[in-house]
Design a protein around this nucleic acid. Sequence first.
DNA 1: CTAGAACCTGACGTTGACGTCAGGTGCAAG
DNA 2: CTTGCACCTGACGTCAACGTCAGGTTCTAG
Lengths: 128, 128
Amino acid sequence: MRVGELAARTGVSVRALRYYEEQGLLTAGRSPGGQRHYARGAVDRVVLIQRLYAAGLSSRTIAELLPCVVDGRATPDLLRRLQTERDRLEGRIRDLLEVRDSLDGVIGAAAANERTGAPCERSTRVSP
Amino acid sequence: MRVGELAARTGVSVRALRYYEEQGLLTAGRSPGGQRHYARGAVDRVVLIQRLYAAGLSSRTIAELLPCVVDGRATPDLLRRLQTERDRLEGRIRDLLEVRDSLDGVIGAAAANERTGAPCERSTRVSP
DNA sequence: CTAGAACCTGACGTTGACGTCAGGTGCAAG
DNA sequence: CTTGCACCTGACGTCAACGTCAGGTTCTAG
């Protein structure tokens, strides 16, 4: 499959796919004319890359960890990096859960106020 | 308290605090000479801002929602925005949990391989 | 009163993950 | 064979959340 199809299948832009290749996250064969040609598994790989980005990892980190994520092998050094990233992720998740809960609190209070009729004026009160 | 102290208390740079003010996230009184002067509550507010950033909200979104997050009042419109952001956050959390679990899987497998002696060569296998 | 730390504004620099544009090439259909 | 869409490389643009630097002012300790 060529780059346009992979883009369509993954929902990622063509530009992004070339960027991933540039960063060493994704490889492609080439047609005689120089066009990229991807294997079927590339779709899953791109999806995985997207998820790792979403988890807050940088291209550099992903490039270092991805080979081992893919084939499940790691040097002791890489294993430590994996653990580090896992722990960082765990902390992020905890933070987000707290924010979610506090948003829930705010929403609950606002909904109650709405029922009792007490609208919010824009930027009326700011911290003194 | 002045900007340096607030920065020290929150662990946020002075530049960032001025940026928050520029974005309408934080307000400050001024001394006769023009220096910013913050109330005690500013520390909590800055911490809250940091957490909202960490949750993936933009300055613009935070600026819109913060007044209502602070005083618990919202127009129906803002209430919907709050719900939207809450749901977005929920989705993000689910994604991160999945990534964490898959990292756990990788770490488990890698640790097992390490015990059985099967190191990971750098970029040996890439998707064909 | 004076040194110097802390502060001010304004403006340009940085970084990551792409977007976008220019100018040229590959390739399948008719 | 030529039309035209998909693709190529290379290079500059963008955007957010600050960093950093210049040149000047304010505040506070001694």
